[in-house]
Every structure is written in C-alpha cells, then in structure tokens.
C-alpha cells in the first residue's frame, strides 16, 4: 500500500458516496448512465472473483463495498427511481465495449484460466466503462454539478493509480503492463472532462460543453 493507491481508493469510495447521495436526496437518477453503472457492476463481479479464495482485510472489504454499492445503484435505477431514467439519451452501444474487452481478454490474458481471462476482461472493460456516461453528458450538453463531481472523483481514482504504479515499480520493481496500459487509456478518456471540470465547475460555473 502507498499513499497514491490509498488516495485513489478513497476517491473511488467518495465517487460512490456522491452518486448514491445524489440519487437518494434528489430521488432521481437523471443524468446518470444506466449502461455505465451496469458495466461497472460487471467489472467488479468479474475482477473480484478471488474473494472466494483469498482474504485480505482491506482489499476484501473494499471489493465487497464496490460490488454491493454497484448492485445497490442498479437496484435504485431499476426500481424506485426507474421513472426518472430516460433510456432515450443513454444510447451508447455497449456491445462494442464488451466485445472488445472480451476479445482482448481472450487473446492476451496472463494465463488462460477462467479467473485470469475474466480479470483481464474486467481491466479492459473498466478502462472504457465511463464512455456511455460521458456520451450522455455530451449529448445533453450539460450536467448537474453533483454529476460532474461524481465523474471527477471516479476519474481521479484511476488517475491516482498511475503514480501508484510508478511508485511500485521504483520501490519493488513490480509492474503490471496490462493494468498500466488500460489505466492510462482510462485516464486519457477523462482528460477532456477534467479540463472542462477545472475550467468551469471549480470556478463555480455550470458544466456546459463549449
């Protein structure tokens, strides 16, 4: 563990908290992409299969929180707040994301075992899982401030993993090329969003695309 990874994980927790807080206080999931949320649940379920055979207090607790909160968000979106979700603006074709991640996972896993292939699938899928959400924001041309805070916190999580990987490489010469490539792609996808977030939202203006 190092400070970058801890900070990244905390941002991840904060993002989940912001999302659930937004939905429960406004009793609405407007502006949130159901498709992105469903992809995240798929990411966590396929990556954290090792919950069944390894235990580490910090990691296992976080994994359970991520799976549980993700399932809870989907429950809110399909149950109580379903009327506030507009599928007509959530139209990103996720089959290409799932298909692409599946192909990469089958071609280049570290080992050809079900758990390792699914782990690799989850890494690639996570790197692009935000796209339906960003696409939705782009389509509507604006987003509620709370939604932008959510997307920012989620992006900051993977961005902070980059210094974590540099630190791990320097201190224990450990590196995992797959995670790093996918993590950098993921961060790059957020970069436009980060830029607009910094220049608009943090200066107290509404998030609107130029």
């Amino acid at each position: 563990m190092n400070i970058f990874r801890l900070a990244g994980d905390l941002f991840h927790l904060i993002s989940i908290f912001i999302l659930i807080h937004k939905m429960t206080t406004s009793k609405s999931c407007s502006g949130i992409s159901f498709k992105s949320q469903a992809l995240y649940l798929l990411v966590y379920v396929t990556r954290y299969l090792d919950l069944f055979w390894t235990f580490a207090l910090y990691n296992s607790t976080m994994k359970i929180i991520f799976i549980g909160s993700s399932a809870y968000v989907l429950h809110l979106m399909t149950g109580p707040f379903k009327p506030t979700h507009d599928p007509n603006i959530d139209t990103f074709k996720v089959r290409y994301l799932i298909g692409g991640a599946a192909i990469l996972a089958l071609l280049f896993p570290y080992k050809w075992t079900p758990a390792e292939v699914l782990w690799t699938f989850s890494i690639w899928l996570e790197s692009v899982a935000i796209l339906p959400q960003l696409f939705m924001v782009q389509r509507t041309g604006a987003a509620e401030t709370i939604t932008t805070h959510y997307i920012f916190a989620l992006g900051a999580y993977r961005a902070l993993y980059i210094p974590n990987w540099i630190y791990r490489y320097l201190t224990s010469t450990f590196w995992d090329p797959l995670s790093i490539i996918a993590g950098v792609i993921q961060t790059v996808l957020y970069s436009d969003f980060f830029y607009i977030y910094y220049t608009k939202v943090l200066q107290g203006r509404k998030f609107e695309l130029p």
């Binding site: 563990m1 990874r5 994980d9 991840h12 090792d50 390894t54 580490a56 990691n59 976080m62 994994k63 991520f66 570290y110 782990w119 993993y161 974590n164 791990r168 224990s172 450990f174 995992d176 797959l178 995670s179």
Partner: peptide, 10 residues
C-alpha cells in the same frame, strides 16, 4: 505486504 501481485490492487 505479501509478494507483489496485480491482484492486490482494486
């Protein structure tokens, strides 16, 4: 911390 592994990250 045990042997570094990619599975020790979230």
């Amino acid at each position: 911390e045990a042997k570094p592994s990619r599975h020790d990250e979230l």
